[in-house]
Design a protein around this nucleic acid. Structure first.
Length: 565
RNA sequence: CGGGGUGUAGCGCAGUUUGGUAGCGCGCUUGGUUUGGGACCAAGAUGUCGGGAGUUCGAAUCUCUUCACCCCGACCA
């Protein structure tokens, strides 16, 4: 590719409305152009980057037996009515009608389409497990798009859906996918991405992880323990802390007295048992004899496996007496899966250092709703993970709170969609069952922006080799010089013949312009042909990350370049 | 949806307080001089001053209204 024909402008001044570096550099570098709020077109350099990211994703998804498919962007409302999400999702879901008045939606996620695609096919347990995925445009009418490609309304996403006949099988595959994600991010040049336990939100299901790239411009806050492997999104905690600020100060005083509590005291604080038909279930924490009280609404049951997973430590059922120390407890249990939401710890002297988590399982009835129903907001004060606070897993004062960009996520969906959409199979005993599902997403454009965000300098992005738009940026400085022009042209042709991805700048412009443009394009290796270099019978090779700056003899330039890339 | 801010040439901005010929830098076109980190000289093109309505002899400037975008919050498979 010749640079002088590359469509898109590169320029010096930072656009005033770009708040994050990746946005500014990608606009300045001619990677993308604003079309409407949260909607962008991509020029060739960005398209080449996203194409490479997609290819990495494809290879890794194929390696865990994924099958690439394609769902429609536009779906009939009836499909979304089956799952109940046509009604339950807000304005993010774009609804419109076709010429005959039939209601349609724009795909923002494709669980419904996935179930629809396979439910007639997968009627026998022998067809399981399997995973299907697609890489496709999604549209979500976000309330506030921002930060360039980090948060947009229209975007390309890889979304995968797996189907299983047992929870164990799902969990096994979930782990496999987790590892595939780690490989994807490492290959894309950001091995530092970490997975954190997350809130499942409107997706439903229980266990889920988000893959976070830690950077200050991130939209999510993540609590990370420096002593153990505990990592979690702060989302739920923040909600509850906000709520607590509205509490009357008298109530605060009452619960701020650290002491041992009995179950009756705890219940009376909550007003839970009599007022809300809650029942209390007591568990004992195996490692240190702490008691956990889980309040359940209505006739919900505790899923001990999930509870254990959620807590990160083993528990067993227990009973407590009048003087048993209750050192930890939960308000729990809304939604379909019997998850819990708030953990507090009465043994702590400092009430600021309490631990919590939240796990919404039902978008109709969130953890916060539950907390409000329970009336006594005082417990929510305990729901605080904070900088320097206590880790809910290892118990040490070792929590740091960081910002992160969510570049991917994985969910254990359970039977939420298969059940709602009546997808069944016959198991080996001849019984009808709902398949258990998992889903797995990666935002392609956001990933590109995230890489740029952590790999750039003042002059432009520094693309990792694996996703760089080109491998070699060939500069013919003083292309009006016959010798330079001939040598550079020749080298360009040779590189092309070898299949090297090369962008060739043979414009007769000043070296400053040429180098600035090269910096903005962020190609890993810059090859400089100039009168000065040729006068010494060399060409110059410089890496974009500045770790390499060398000259090689003119005659061996091609070989040296091939060795590098 | 709430709070704050900004809309003037492709980009970055001045001009608005106090109404009086539409400006500057970069970029773009042409010619020339230059040539290793965004060069210089000369000539030139590009504006519904976000839109609409009003006040006025006269509006980028004052009034009303509307739209768009940015930031904070709410929200967010």
């Amino acid at each position: 590719m010749k640079l002088d024909k590359l469509v898109g402008e590169r320029f010096k001044e930072r656009p005033s409305d770009c708040m994050v570096d990746s946005h500014a550099l990608m606009v300045r570098g001619g990677y993308m152009k604003y079309v409407a709020n949260g909607i962008f077109s991509q020029y060739m350099p960005l398209k080449r980057i996203t194409r490479k990211i997609e290819q990495i994703i494809r290879e890794e998804m194929d390696a865990i037996d994924g099958q690439e498919v394609l769902f429609p962007v536009v779906m009939p409302a009836t499909l979304w009515q089956e799952s109940g999400r046509y009604e339950s999702i807000g304005k993010e879901l774009v609804r419109f009608a076709d010429r005959s008045g039939s209601p349609l939606v724009l795909g923002m996620t494709h669980e419904e389409a996935a179930v629809q695609l396979v439910r007639e096919y997968a009627q026998s347990y022998q067809k399981y497990p399997f995973m299907i995925y697609q890489i496709q445009t999604k549209f979500r009418d976000e309330a506030r798009p921002k930060s360039g490609l980090i948060r947009v309304r229209e975007f390309t996403m890889k979304d995968a859906y797996s189907f299983h006949t047992s929870q164990e099988d799902l969990e096994q595959y979930y782990d496999k996918c987790h590892k595939a994600y780690e490989r994807i991010f490492a290959r894309a040049g950001i091995p530092e991405v970490v997975s954190v336990a997350s809130d499942s939100g409107m997706m439903g299901g229980s266990i889920s992880h988000e893959f976070m790239l830690l950077t200050d411009i991130g939209e999510d806050s993540i609590a990370i323990c420096s002593e153990c492997d505990y990592r979690a999104n702060m989302e739920a905690a923040e909600n509850i802390i906000d709520y607590v600020r509205t509490m009357p100060s008298e109530d605060l005083k009452k619960v701020h007295t650290p002491s041992q509590r009995t179950i009756e005291e705890v219940c009376s604080y909550l007003g839970a048992e009599p007022k809300n038909s809650c029942k209390a279930v007591v568990y004992q924490r195996n490692i240190d004899d702490k008691y956990i009280v889980l309040f359940l609404r209505g006739d919900l049951e505790v899923n001990e496996t999930k509870l254990t997973n959620y807590l990160g430590f083993d528990i067993h059922p227990a009973t407590i007496t009048e003087d048993s120390p209750i050192v930890a407890g939960f308000i729990g249990p809304m939604g379909l899966e019997g998850d819990m939401m708030v953990l507090y710890d009465h043994s702590l002297k400092d009430m600021n250092n309490l631990v919590c988590g939240a796990n919404e399982t039902d978008y109709h009835y969130t953890g916060l709703d539950m907390a409000r129903d329970v009336k006594n907001a005082e417990y929510h004060d305990f729901a605080k993970i904070q900088q320097g606070g206590i880790c809910p897993k290892c118990g040490k004062h070792s929590i740091t709170v960081s910002r992160g960009i969510e570049v991917g996520n994985i969910f254990q969906l359970g039977v939420k969609y298969s059940k709602a959409m009546n997808m069944t199979y016959i198991d080996s005993e001849g019984n009808s069952q709902y398949p258990i599902m998992g889903c797995y997403g990666i935002g392609v454009g956001r990933l590109a922006a995230a890489v740029c965000e952590v790999h750039h300098d003042d002059y432009g992005p520094i693309w990792p080799k694996a996703i760089a738009p080109w491998q070699v940026h060939l500069c013919a400085v003083r292309s009006d010089n016959e010798e330079v022009k001939n040598f550079a042209n020749n080298l360009y042709e040779q590189l092309l013949a070898k299949g090297v991805e090369v962008i060739y700048d043979d414009r007769n412009v000043s070296a400053g312009i040429m180098f600035s443009d090269a910096d903005l394009l962020g190609v890993p290796y810059r090859v400089i042909v100039s009168p000065r270099n040729l006068g010494q019978n060399v060409v110059e090779i410089v890496s974009r990350d500045k770790t390499l700056k060398t000259t090689v003899p003119m005659g061996s330039a091609l070989d040296e370049i091939l060795k590098l890339i």
